[in-house]
Design a protein around this nucleic acid. Sequence first.
DNA 1: CGGGGTATTGAGTGCCTTCAACCCCCGTGG
DNA 2: CCACGGGGGTTGAAGGCACTCAATACCCCG
Lengths: 245, 245
Amino acid sequence: MSLLPKHPVEVEETISCQDCASRRHAWFKQCTANDLHHYQIFRTSQNTLAAGEYLFMEGDTPTSAYTLQDGWAICFKTLSNGQRQVLSVAFSGDYLGYRTNMNEPIDYSVMAVKDCRICSFSEKNIRQLLAKNPELIQSLFSIQETQANACRTRLTYVGQAPAKLKLAYFLVNILDKLKDRGIDIQQNIEFPLTHEDVADAIGITSVHMCRIAVELRRSNIVDCRHNHIRVMDFDALNKLATSVF
Amino acid sequence: MSLLPKHPVEVEETISCQDCASRRHAWFKQCTANDLHHYQIFRTSQNTLAAGEYLFMEGDTPTSAYTLQDGWAICFKTLSNGQRQVLSVAFSGDYLGYRTNMNEPIDYSVMAVKDCRICSFSEKNIRQLLAKNPELIQSLFSIQETQANACRTRLTYVGQAPAKLKLAYFLVNILDKLKDRGIDIQQNIEFPLTHEDVADAIGITSVHMCRIAVELRRSNIVDCRHNHIRVMDFDALNKLATSVF
DNA sequence: CGGGGTATTGAGTGCCTTCAACCCCCGTGG
DNA sequence: CCACGGGGGTTGAAGGCACTCAATACCCCG
């Protein structure tokens, strides 16, 4: 995986902000059509990132920030012994890599787990865009806040809940986001996270993840493996998840 | 604890921003004396909060944000089974309770663990202050970012490290902050967190916390109990802590 | 039809938890 | 000054959840 090319490939046909399916979950979600017209000239490029490739790595100093237009990516930190902590899973509309001082190195990595399409904003363009449209700072702020809230919630259940509940909460959280993006979660749907990815997200080993996954499958609650997830009893899964808090 | 009065008590003698010892770690850290003069009229009140009292509780909708001028507080989330996850420990200069939409309920509690002095800014005043001084948004942003980074780091070691390393990292992190605030960490210093508080921060039980604490004490590394911490071998402690990442 | 990555399973181990008892420290009040 | 009480800290025994190691099976892609 780590030998794959690191840098995204520029696409030929760009999508306008107006037509971008990710927009209603993204930075510009509250903007009018007229606003968008002014904003989108500040986009720097649109790129693709194949599954397994990195958008950036911990310690890099990416001078752009990115909106994930389409695909799945994971954000994670790596420990000295090689273990990972997956911090979050990014979906269409998620904004990645922005920080107050774009000259500082970033403290986590982002890797595509499914082919991604990415919209880039260079630091310079962001600065200009914010200078011209100061109201956009509010929504950036609110994006950061949402991410911070999610991180606190994750910390809480990773720190306190038993593995089965962690898994349930993690899956429901992801299913909610997929539902928001128009996916019918009653179907057998694509799920490009491996058991190991999920294990690294909820703080258990992949072997133990597998045992819990088998248990949930045999209870006819959810089946999650081989790139797919099939929810058999959402109520039961959700009941497990909400029993945490 | 939970029966103690919840609301802070207003103090009679306020401290000016200029003279505030917490300022160099706080929102206004980069401001000039002249700036401060203009900013401080937007402060709403200064209060004291006794150890054990809450600044606000999860689910509340505090319409002010707060700078901790002095004292120690813990931020935590509570689970349905009564367990807590301590999200962070707040020190002099830390900014608490701010969110984009101050009409939304807050998702964690803040409780003083040592008597605190607190500077309040009402939502209305913050709005006016930011409207008049838009440059202050940047530093708010950067405060949020710092808190989010800390949360990601905490999530990572809580999720991945064994108890002894979690404890070492947690303690070094706190000692660093104390050092920044001019405290000589070679001395026997005040440490108002109980074993249970620390355990809830690093995701272990207080019993196991005690066993690890005993182990570190018997190794002549650090002694932490009864409201005090004494570092006997900072290098050894730091070596444990840095071995995580 | 391989082959590599992913998932599964078992056996054995150990870190951490639970439960419970006891002790110590320290503040309070006589 | 000492007695008292209570919260916090300590310890042991027992058990379980999750880990490690290792072998095997499965899935999918080329």
